[in-house]
Amino acid sequence: MRRDRSIIKNEKSLRTYITPPADLYETPDAYILYIDLPGVTKENLNIKVVDNSLIVQGKFELSLPKDSDTMFSELAKGEYRREFVLAGDVDRNKIDAKLVNGVLILTLGKKEESKEIEIKIE
């Protein structure tokens, strides 16, 4: 069973993806992840948690008129994909996603028991 899955994984990795830049911050309650995904709409975005990893995948479609000449072509074309290994203290049920101006903002809440508590000295 496990072997089969690894084969599938390898097949998938044969595709090339664009790796979008990401920022990761940590607060006492959560991890906040910002990923630049310009051109990706909510419909073309796929976020999932598989085992210990968080996978973000998004498509960027360019609609150009048929009879056009390209003068500058710097934009990356294709599919974005980024995989993150989740830390043990992430609560899988507390993951929020927002897409603002081409930036995906993921808030990964921490498990209640792994939150930092300050111990008062008496």
Binding site: Y34, P38, L62, L64, D69, M71, F72, N101
Partner: peptide, 23 residues
């Protein structure tokens, strides 16, 4: 920002990727 510029018979189309910037 990275740009794409294309030209048709009637117009020029400029596309720039500027994620995270508000309008």
């Amino acid at each position: 920002p990275r740009v794409d510029i294309s030209e048709t018979d009637d117009e020029y189309i400029v596309r720039a990727e500027i994620p995270g910037v508000s309008k």
